[in-house]
């Protein structure tokens, strides 16, 4: 009982704190609002857009519960004639593979995102310092790879024969942890939101660049960090290409979830492209309902990770106000 009360008290305190925080800008917000009519219009617009965007996910979920026969006769439908959980049963039979790859995906995503954020932020910060001597050189240095690449074969040779990444988790983490695009976004954020005076004052206090970066710059650039972290999270979660090249089929213990899905797609493509060569002993294609079931398993968890990042974008003007 006592514990319950304490918890309750905590919640109240939290609520109060939030209220106070928003009070800072409340007065300002009141003047700063769009008219109620515009608000209604905008809200309606967003509800409409959101509906269009939710539809396909709904569709995928419905198909995953549709019976295969029903698809065969009536095609895909939002209102299936016959429901079935057969596809989930089939996925359940594959639980060793799907479960393992699910854990792999989470591990790779978390680790890769952390690594990627560090690499991106440090370079982005360096490039944003106007008095950095090598700034011009480094801009070109990271710009060129955005356009010119060695190609799959050369990358494969370097990654397998020099770095020996084949059949390791590193092959799924390292090649995509950094990108010119993310660094440039980061640089732009830094140049627009970090005032030079702050760096200068840091230096006057005797801090070195690493300390300035970690203690002064990063805290006010949380939205930027969250943006890049979000991009990386999605990139890692959706990644399958490197798995298809660097992970042998017999090392299914290293598969990420997306690759399990894609390997099924590839099989279907292969069967179409080689219709002439497929003799009776070739395996049949898996059903569509089963593929959709895997899509559901692959999409739903990442959906729930989104609100975690989201709080950094939609907190309105409060962050700015506090900073000001």
């Amino acid at each position: 009982m006592a514990i319950f009360k304490k918890k309750e008290a905590d919640t109240y305190n939290e609520l109060d704190a939030k209220k106070n925080a928003s009070n800072v800008s409340d007065g300002m917000l009141r003047f700063n609002r769009v008219t109620p009519f515009s608000n209604a219009l905008y809200s309606a617009l967003f509800i409409f857009i959101a509906a269009i965007c939710v539809l396909p996910v709904l569709f995928v979920i419905i198909i995953s519960f549709t019976s295969e026969q029903s698809i065969g006769v009536y095609g895909y439908s939002f209102f299936p004639k016959e429901l079935s959980v057969a596809s989930y049963k089939y996925v359940w039979n594959m639980r060793d593979l799907v479960g393992r790859s699910f854990l792999n995906s989470i591990g790779i995503t978390v680790f890769g995102t952390c690594l990627g954020v560090i690499l991106t932020a440090t370079m982005g910060y360096t490039l944003s310092r106007r008095n950095y001597k090598f700034r011009g050189f480094y801009t070109w240095f990271i710009f060129i790879p955005m356009l010119f690449r060695g190609g799959t074969l050369a990358s494969y040779v370097v990654n397998t024969q020099i770095m020996h990444l084949k059949d390791t988790y590193w092959a799924l983490i390292l090649p995509i942890c950094c990108s010119t695009f993310n660094i440039i976004i980061m640089r732009t954020f830094f140049t627009t939101t970090v005032p030079d005076e702050m760096i200068e004052s840091g230096k006057i206090d005797g801090a070195n660049q690493l300390r300035i970066f970690v203690q002064l710059v990063l805290p006010i650039c949380l939205p930027a960090i969250a943006t890049i972290a979000l991009f990386l999270t999605f990139a890692y979660w959706n990644e399958w290409f490197h798995a298809s090249i660097y992970i042998s089929s017999t090392r299914s213990d290293l598969f990420p979830l997306q690759y399990v899905l894609v390997s099924i797609e590839q099989k279907i493509q292969w069967l179409i492209n080689n219709a002439g060569n497929v003799s009776a002993d070739a395996q049949d294609v898996p059903s569509e309902t089963m593929r959709m079931a895997i899509v559901v398993i692959a999409v739903v968890p990442i959906m729930f990770s989104y609100p975690f990042f989201q709080k950094y974008y939609i907190s309105g003007l409060t962050v700015g106000a506090v900073k000001g």
Binding site: G150, G151, P175
Partner: peptide, 19 residues
């Protein structure tokens, strides 16, 4: 500070560029 990223770019972008 930017050295780790520099190494990454060399290994994953510049070395394979001979391709």
């Amino acid at each position: 500070l930017s050295l780790p990223t520099t190494i990454w770019f060399i290994m994953f972008c510049y070395v394979p560029m001979f391709g």
